[in-house]
Write a protein that binds this DNA or RNA. Structure first.
Length: 492
RNA sequence: GGUCUCGUGGCCGAGCGGCUAGGCUGGGCUCUGCAAAAGCUCCCACAGCGGUUCGAAUCCGCUCGAGACCUCCA
């Protein structure tokens, strides 16, 4: 039996709209389901948000000792287009344009998505199920809902009967709206005349002739409704009731709202004990998204190849930037903010190196335990990473002070500090030092050390011209020289 | 139009009844042959107007402004 760390983790539950103490249904096991990407385009900064936010949830829960099964789906089928492409699958549409197999497109962008997430040091979920691989499960769930009487068949499609559901249950409880408001504001969609009520939504959709992705079903040739995949796959891998369901705020309605209704109708219970929603990334104060066409892809950030970008940004800068804001707040993108994040991140990483070489003495001026407790308190308070990062910079100051000799630390405290610092920075926040150390780097390191010796000799002789010449030339090559009391240090 | 969020210093962003985070930027000082780095330090903000309170950025009301969802969206 594994030990769960003593903690008072609270998380904000979107359904009850309050912070609740986290208590898993079947401790030490935790089931976490997050809505993943629709793979018909490159991942942009907006996709990094839930990727990183729930990576933190995943990492922290594991750190606390829970056995977490993290499921994040890949949507490669099912989302309807509006406008000119009534009823045509988004992926199928793209496929037609590029004359590729739909699955080829899906695979291509799935791989690209994974690459981007890997670059951001987002840990891979335990399971990444594809919607197209779970058509049978989805059909089974549609049947169950029909059996329970909360759906009806109409012209080869199956619709969820919201009105009937709402008689006994509350459709709208998650997104905070009532069925009348929804009805009034529903615009006319394809297939509206097939529905008994405008608020009803398709759980199985009849495929029009030009629709490429289609499967035979008891109701005819078609494809699953928009929200079925998450309901079917979450219950398959995590059970009818699991702990946490996450996703972007923009999915609350209608996606998550409908998921709840489907699960109640099919399985007689609500799927998740806690609902978590990350907020949006904005650009010029507006949501960055596909529909507004104002997005910048992660690859573009990494390469700097975009008009908005003044420079390229390291993946870890993006990660740091996102974690400096709380996941439930919007973050506004700007070059200025990213450059600031980049500098702050470098400072943190330098401190990590300094810490590794720190020397202890016989007394401590820094209360390491109190510091660590504050860090845990920040994480326990709904994963408050900005506060955690603020505490990290507090200890960075202490680390630098100890190095300069203005503060001191005992061997025991130093050991604890190293352990906890690494836990918070690398294990929980998931940062990683940039990989500079390889053979050629070692070689150039030796060469730089040699040049520094020559410079030291020149300095002894008060030959400032030579000393400065060596330093300036190294600086031009991108090697920064820092003179300290113990001799010169350098970094790339 | 409906539902709901949010408006914090030069910028980004926490806090959500008192002790006024943190990062970036800018000024000063220490160290140093100079520089860089680091340390110390300064710049004490909470959209506006009322109200509650001994006390409000934090609670309530109104006004103004921004945004999200209501359609695929992370």
């Amino acid at each position: 039996m594994s030990e769960i760390k003593q903690n008072k983790l609270k998380l904000y539950d979107s359904l009850s709209r309050e912070k609740r103490v986290f208590e898993p249904l079947k401790s030490p096991h935790v089931g976490l389901y997050v809505c993943g990407p629709t793979v018909y385009g490159d991942a942009h900064l907006g996709h990094a948000r839930p990727g990183i936010a729930f990576d933190i949830v995943f990492r922290y829960l594991k750190h606390l000792g829970y056995k977490v099964r993290y499921v994040r789906n890949i949507t490669d089928v099912g989302h309807l287009e509006n406008d000119a492409d009534h009823g045509e699958d988004k992926i199928a549409k793209k496929a037609r344009l590029e004359e590729l197999e739909p699955m080829e497109i899906a695979q291509f962008y799935t791989d690209r998505y994974m690459d981007s997430m890997d670059a951001l040091n987002v840990q891979r979920p335990s399971i990444q199920p594809r919607a197209s691989g779970h058509i049978i499960e989805q059909m089974e769930m549609v049947s169950k809902i029909l059996d329970s009487g909360y759906a009806y068949e109409s012209k080869g499609s199956v619709y969820f009967d919201v009105k009937k559901y709402n008689e006994k249950h509350n459709y709208g409880k998650l997104s905070g709206r009532n069925i009348e408001d929804v009805r009034e504001n529903t615009r006319s969609l394809d297939g509206q005349d097939e529905k008994r009520d405008g608020v009803d939504f398709a759980i199985w959709k009849n495929a029009s002739p030009e629709h490429i992705m289609r499967w035979n079903s008891p109701w005819g040739s078609g494809f699953p409704g928009w929200h079925m995949e998450c309901s079917a796959m979450s219950s398959k891998y995590l059970g009818n009731e699991f702990d946490i369901h996450g996703g972007g705020m923009d999915l609350k309605f209608p996606h998550h709202e409908s998921e709840i209704a489907q699960s109640v109708a099919a399985n007689c219970c609500e799927p998740a004990k806690y609902w978590m929603h990350n907020n949006m990334v904005t650009i010029d104060g507006q949501k960055m998204g596909k529909s507004l066409n104002n997005f910048i892809t992660l690859d573009e950030f990494f390469s700097g190849n975009h008009n908005f970008l003044e420079q390229a940004y390291e993946p870890m800068t993006i990660r740091f930037f996102i974690l400096q804001a709380h996941y439930r707040s919007t973050v506004d993108f700007s070059n200025e903010a990213l450059i600031a994040a980049s500098k702050g991140y470098d400072k943190l990483m330098k401190a990590a190196e300094t810490l590794a070489e720190l020397k202890s003495s016989d007394k401590s001026d820094y209360d390491v335990k109190a510091w660590a407790n504050k860090c845990y308190a920040a994480m326990d308070d709904d994963f408050n990473t900005p506060i955690l990062i603020a505490h990290l910079f507090d200890v960075v100051k202490a680390i630098n002070s100890i190095k300069v000799g203005k503060m001191s630390i005992t061997a025991d405290d130093l050991e604890l500090l190293k352990a906890q610092f690494n836990i918070f920075v690398f294990e929980i926040l998931g940062f990683k030092a940039s990989e500079k150390s390889n053979n050629s780097a070692n070689m150039s390191g030796s060469l730089i050390d040699m040049l520094l010796k020559m410079r030291h000799q020149a300095k002894m002789n008060k030959d400032w011209a030579t000393a400065d010449d060596i330093r300036n030339q190294l600086t031009d090559l991108g090697v920064a020289i820092k003179d300290t009391k113990d001799g010169a240090e350098w970094e790339l």
